[in-house]
Design a protein around this nucleic acid. Structure first.
Lengths: 329, 329
DNA sequence: CTGAAAGCGCTTACAG
DNA sequence: CTGAAAGCGCTTACAG
């Protein structure tokens, strides 16, 4: 039985092994050379006492390691949970704990979570911004490495891991052109966000301008997609196809189409974004430009590892999207 | 400009305010009385220096506060992310950081995350078990409060927050009986898990035994639900209705029904579990027994708060499910 | 290769 | 009410 009856401390291990705490620490960290005999005794004591180093104490002494903050606007959105999954995979490899903050697209909550991240002395921050104007000045001042995911920040020079949305838009446009659609509506994200505009530019690069009969803006949520789709159908009853730049809005759009008793793809052909057919209750023949959010998380995490704890200069890593045609069961 | 050019420490604040670090600490924690004059000077210094207490140092000195671990089997499952959302809401109120571990239904990963939780000196653990046989003995030994969510553990006496699944099953049965169905199939979770059996018992309490023509077991994933539905349709072509005890399996079942060109509800009436119509691309007239996962998370978190840092005796908190009839757009 | 000791940034008895 | 000091559990120069 150990000291407080709770957990063994490094002292207990040292005593049991008949060495100093420094030696125990060295054996465990594996960085300095320790004689074979002592190493063995230390490991035996560690095992016997079921010793687990206190990560809090370790982090205090040696800050900026073993913990990351992942901050996302909506934990309930599968895109972000998949990013989290990817981040976690890498974090696990390096024995890093990751805490997740959910901002709910609220700047105050972002501020709080960034502050918490600093107060927790994290080794790095992975931020999925709510908007390109998110304020990260405190983080920059603190010198903690930060990687942005899914979106760049306009005012700051940060490393970003994201999908090549221009290419995504281009793919969607080419697909629609190949299928011969000439009256296309677009449902895009908020105007102020350059990412959505990038998707639009990609779209415009592959179809003629007059094919795009209208562009509606939504809030990237299901409701916003439905409302936008409604406006599109109201103002352009002769619409042939629609391109929606976000997963939840695509779902909203599909529901609105269904509500009006229109059929996909006969009445309106839909190209969505990030649709995961795994989650559908019924086949809907809709094409989709898909990102690989897990991979985004992984790459962001590895970027943090590679940064070696130092802030990086700006660097955008673009991952390729994939077009999935007419997903059906 | 502060010491290391990074962040102000409590020393810097004390110096600036002309008081001891003890006084700063007292003002910030608000527990001891400090004279108005000093309090004012301290707050001014805190503001001027933009001081944020180092949570790592605080936790080392005063363990068992301000951090929780939330461990779930699948972060990509919306049920668990909603639980996370609920937990986070409460954690935020109390300025608690919560780190999330994703076990992927793997006992080794559970072991690792529990170990990390201990090493991080968390104030509490919220565990959504992968199976009722999950091993939490290390946690119990450590005296850290743990609350289980969604499932009880067979071998341990822990506080659990979960939906009243007996009632959920009963509601489903009553609904099916009210609609006059007499040839009902069931797709339940793994046999070894008592929770799935509870749902079955609830079902059995409200319909006659001979109404249940077959019970298949699935793995709580989309694929398992589809396979089980396939077996049901193969062995009982005259099936009228099916009750599925989990969200992903319900989706799998619906897809399988669609695959076979059968219609819901004309050919097979479906009562699912935890279906979120918000996520659907098209209306499917399916009824569903729904839990309130956010609330489960909230209640679990409040239980942790109320435990005052002490392990509780066993205590099961049952939340009511809700039947949503024939969800459609 | 090994140990004694300082120190990471806080909090909290202990005096006064 | 306030401060000097000890100590939380580690890691890491510094000596030897």
């Amino acid at each position: 039985m150990i000291g407080h009856g709770v957990t063994a401390r490094i002292q207990d291990v040292a005593a049991q092994a008949g060495v100093s705490t420094a030696t125990v620490s060295r054996v465990l960290s594996g960085v300095d050379n320790v004689s074979e005999a002592l190493t063995e005794r230390v490991w035996k004591a560690v095992t016997d006492l079921d010793y687990r180093p206190n990560r809090v104490a370790r982090r205090l002494r040696r800050p900026g390691r073993e913990m990351w903050a992942l901050i996302v606007p909506d934990v309930e959105n599968r895109f972000f949970t998949s990013v989290a999954r990817g981040v976690e995979e890498v974090a696990n490899e390096y024995d890093i704990t990751v805490f997740i903050g959910n901002t709910d697209y609220d700047p105050d909550r972002l501020k709080r979570y960034l502050s918490t991240a600093l107060a927790e002395q994290v080794a790095g921050i992975i931020l999925a911004p709510s908007s390109p104007t998110d304020d990260v000045s405190d983080v920059l001042a603190s010198q903690i490495p930060i990687v942005t995911v899914d979106q760049t920040l306009t005012s700051r020079s940060l490393t970003t891991v994201m999908t090549d949305h221009y290419e995504g838009g281009r793919m969607a446009g080419q697909h629609l052109r190949d299928r011969g659609y000439e009256r296309i509506g677009v449902i895009a994200g908020p105007q102020h966000s350059p990412e959505w505009n990038t998707r639009l530019e990609g779209l415009q690069s592959s179809i003629s301008p007059e094919s795009i009969v209208a562009t509606e803006r939504g809030d990237n949520r299901v409701g916003g997609g439905g409302t936008a789709m409604g406006r599109l159908l109201d103002t352009h009853p002769d619409l042939e196809a629609v391109f929606v730049t976000n997963n939840l809005m695509t779902i909203g759009a599909l529901r609105e189409i269904d509500l009006r008793a229109l059929r996909v793809p006969e009445d309106v052909y839909v190209v969505g974004y990030d649709l995961n057919s795994q989650e559908w209750t019924r086949a809907v023949p809709v094409s989709t430009v898909n990102q690989d959010p897990r991979r985004i998380g992984e790459v962001a995490a590895r970027t943090l590892i590679d940064s070696g704890g130092l802030p990086q200069e700006r660097h955008t890593i673009l991952l390729e999207p994939h077009l999935e045609e007419s997903i059906a069961l």
